[in-house]
Simulated scan of single mutants.
Amino acid sequence: MTTQTTDNPAIDTIKASVAENPVMLFMKGTAMFPQCGFSARVVQILTHMGVPFKTANVLEDAELREGIKQFSNWPTIPQLYVKGEFVGGCDIVTEMFQSGELQTLFEKNGIAKTPAA
């Protein structure tokens, strides 16, 4: 299967990141140093759940920041992707976590939790 490239290198980077990482979070800052409260909350939820995830810091790259909004047709950051599918932003992830739906989504997609220390 070949991935189509676009005229926008940021979109190509996003497609590759989403395809290569089972749980991918586009956020402001990094997992160790989130730079917005909404990004921090999603990191906190994923960390609490023990789910391994990769992040991309949209503050380091203006093209990436605009590209992710176009890619998902979603205006805000953070954005969480699971197995290539857009899940949502902070409010949606928080609601899914509280209802147990997020856990179900990870289990359904075979995302293994790492045991809590």
Rank of each mutant, 00 (worst) to 15 (best):
G50W: 03
G100H: 03
L46S: 03
I77G: 10
D61F: 12
P34V: 07
N73I: 01
T114W: 00
C36W: 11
G29K: 00
A112G: 09
V93C: 13
R65F: 04
G88P: 08
S17H: 11
L102W: 10
S17G: 09
L105R: 11
I111S: 10
A117L: 15
S99K: 10
Q44A: 14
N109V: 06
D12L: 02
T13S: 13
K113R: 15
M32I: 05
M27P: 05
A112M: 15
T94F: 12
E107D: 11
T30I: 10
G50C: 02
V82R: 03
N57V: 07
F71K: 00
Q35W: 01
S39K: 06
A10N: 07
S99W: 06
N21P: 12
V58L: 05
D12C: 09
T3E: 09
M24I: 05
M96Q: 15
P78W: 01
V51Y: 13
V87W: 01
D12Q: 02
L102C: 08
G29V: 03
T104F: 03
K83P: 00
A116E: 11
Q70W: 02
T47V: 03
C90T: 06
P52E: 02
Q98Y: 08
F33Y: 00
K15H: 05
N57R: 12
G29R: 03
Q79D: 10
N21Y: 11
Q103L: 06
G89R: 04
G100D: 06
K28A: 05
M32Q: 15
E20N: 09
Q70T: 15
A62V: 14
A40Q: 06
F97D: 13
A16C: 00
E66I: 04
S17D: 13
T30M: 07
G84E: 06
